[in-house]
Write a protein that binds this DNA or RNA. Sequence first.
DNA 1: CGAACTATTGAAATAGCTCAACCGCGGTGG
DNA 2: CCACCGCGGTTGAGCTATTTCAATAGTTCG
Lengths: 241, 241
Amino acid sequence: MLKHIPVAAESTHCSTCMMGSVCLPVGMPASEVAKLDDLVKDRIRLQKGQALFQHGEKLDALFGLRTGSIKTQLDEANGAHQITGFFLPGEIVGLDGMIEGEHSSTAIAMEDSEACVVKLQDIDEISRYVPSLQHQVRRLMSREIARSHQVLLALGSMRSEQRLAAFLLNLSQRLTALGYSPSEFIMRMSREELGNYLGLTLETVSRLFSRFAREGIIIVNQRDIKITDMAALNELIGKPC
Amino acid sequence: MLKHIPVAAESTHCSTCMMGSVCLPVGMPASEVAKLDDLVKDRIRLQKGQALFQHGEKLDALFGLRTGSIKTQLDEANGAHQITGFFLPGEIVGLDGMIEGEHSSTAIAMEDSEACVVKLQDIDEISRYVPSLQHQVRRLMSREIARSHQVLLALGSMRSEQRLAAFLLNLSQRLTALGYSPSEFIMRMSREELGNYLGLTLETVSRLFSRFAREGIIIVNQRDIKITDMAALNELIGKPC
DNA sequence: CGAACTATTGAAATAGCTCAACCGCGGTGG
DNA sequence: CCACCGCGGTTGAGCTATTTCAATAGTTCG
């Protein structure tokens, strides 16, 4: 059972949340953000491995990740699955599969995590007096489409080393936006999960890490990554530094 | 320059459009659809090869494809590109890249086509008295996300023959929804475009067509396809008929 | 009719996969 | 405390699906 935590009156709301600058309100006029306080009525605390929602479940809310990290995946009939995204704090999970009111994917916590629950009906309610909220949801969904197109680009037209380079650069950027170091971080996902996401086997991913390390591009210690030559990564994906 | 055609008063509106059952209004209550008449104020006629919109252009509208077919692609700096979707009549183009009000992709007509223009500001306007319109847009965007996740699944975890099988089945289904034959159709895209979309080379695609034909699964005549063994295709993608 | 695409087919090269062995680390229980 | 297990990661060797390069043919179109 999911652990729900009602958001107490004196607790953090969107308008006072530290994540505001990168989360749902990002880019909204401050005057409007102030009116979002009723948007999040509770939060969910997840333990590592727990599902935030599962394929086929009724969908009536979006989730703003506050702490931790989450992966989303498409489950296949034969038991296999394809990971479609890794989410960091401030990012919105659950934008896919509002078709027929059912989730089309499954979201699983990769470490202990906490997410704000944003009910769809509250979005509708609040957009009546916060006109920009609907635009915001559209913008977030649009960004999610663009994001998955980027992954499509990687899977469709990059070689293995480029996929990993693109992934590391993307992760670095997103972590930077959260205030972390651009060049040193801990990956929450296993080699297998990363391989699944990138359309490679776990062995290939492992070999790539070793090779990048041998070439002096990164320093690898299990999931602890230090990027020592950002330019080389950019060059790999054809972006002249 | 794009050819705009104002929609005359007596012309077809969403409420009377033949495509209504598969296009933007799909699933909306009939009473609401009746109020959508001001949603489309003009249409665009495109010649084969012409762009409906290009990467970086200002985005202020969605497009409902009325006739023809359109491909969307991500353009890379080095001149390469990744095709992210093929669109048929009734499908909505332009849902990606409402970020920063700019298109993140380019949409190109694969044959002479015509699209209804749905201005974003008209959507906002009309949703004031057609409450379900916002839901509808959300639903359509969500479907677009789910769609691209399906492609991700194909690119990430299927072998070449499965990708082509999945593609043919998907195309067949969509054409059926439009009232065409499920088993006999003309593909609007070249082997190269299909290969690009599926993350394969054009030669591999060509060989796969030849092989499927040799195995009695399809009959191929250039872009003219006849599926003779639908069950075999389903089996290929692991869906026991 | 010839030019320029578009598709097919073959042969050789290779990127990434499969199978398999091994290592290291963290927990667990005798 | 230490032996043992299991899991995640690394590395090697051989294999194979797909690509690359190349030659040929069919189709479209001015």
